[in-house]
Simulated scan of single mutants.
Amino acid sequence: MTEPSTRDEKLELGVELLAHVEREELDLAAAVDRIETITTSPALTRDILDAAEKRGVIDREGARLRVNTGGTYVEYERQVVAREGDFECRRCGASVSTGHFIELDAGELGPFGSSCIRKVTGRESESESE
């Protein structure tokens, strides 16, 4: 799989990533943190959130999001692939020798370090307030 290059591909990947977050609720900042692994464009970030809401993937209530796709979490055994090499984590920018990539229907997202992959998928939160 190749990294998404067009705006539409990034939008689809962003919506699918939100659909696979392993939390029923998260705050807007946590959602934006995940989306920023795809794009740092504020306009595209807004479009991803709008598309996810229109498609029923999320409901927005102020600065909180409710994920409506119960049970569609990233399956680590099937959808997360680890590759050895010299990588830079898409989330934190750290150099990593093992890159973790998420394979979604809309495309591949990564590389991530071992702790950032858990944060991006929602298996580990950055704060207890999430």
Rank of each mutant, 00 (worst) to 15 (best):
E75D: 15
R46G: 07
A82Y: 04
R118D: 10
V96G: 02
S129K: 09
S115P: 05
C116P: 00
R123V: 04
A29M: 02
R64H: 04
D50C: 00
V57Y: 10
E22W: 05
A52P: 08
C89H: 03
F87H: 03
L44R: 00
T98G: 02
S97F: 06
E16R: 06
K54G: 13
Y73Q: 14
R55C: 05
L13E: 07
T69W: 15
S97I: 10
D59K: 15
I117F: 03
R23T: 08
G70L: 12
L18A: 06
K54R: 15
V15T: 07
Q79H: 05
E3G: 11
K10F: 12
I35Y: 03
R55N: 07
S97V: 12
T69N: 09
A51E: 11
V32G: 07
A19R: 12
R60W: 10
D86A: 02
K119R: 15
A52K: 02
L18E: 00
C92S: 13
F101P: 08
S95N: 07
V15S: 00
A82W: 01
L13W: 01
E130T: 14
G107F: 12
D27M: 12
R64Q: 10
R123F: 01
R60V: 06
V74P: 03
L26N: 09
D59H: 05
H20F: 09
M1Q: 09
E103A: 10
E9V: 04
S114R: 06
K119T: 11
R60N: 07
E84W: 02
S129D: 13
L49D: 04
E130C: 11
A51K: 13
A31H: 11
V67L: 07
E108I: 14
D105Y: 04
A19N: 00
L104K: 12
A29H: 06
E130Q: 13
T37S: 11
E126F: 14
E108S: 11
R7Y: 15
S5P: 05
G113H: 04
E24Q: 08
E12I: 02
T37V: 09
L11E: 08
L109H: 10
G110K: 00
R78Q: 14
R78N: 09
D33E: 15
S5K: 14
G107T: 12
P4A: 07
L11M: 14
A94N: 06
A29D: 04
K54T: 13
T39G: 13
P42H: 05
T121N: 12
R90N: 06
T69P: 03
E130V: 14
E9K: 02
P42R: 09
V15D: 04
L109N: 02
G70V: 00
R55Q: 09
S115W: 07
F87C: 04
G62E: 12
V57L: 02
D47E: 09
L49A: 01
T121Q: 06
F101L: 01
T40F: 05
E84L: 00
E36M: 00
T121A: 13
A31D: 12
E36T: 06
E3A: 06
G122A: 03
T121I: 12
Q79A: 13
A51P: 01
E3N: 10
H100T: 01
E84G: 03
T121F: 11
G62W: 05
L17A: 01
G113S: 04
L65G: 03
E22F: 03
S129R: 09
C89V: 03
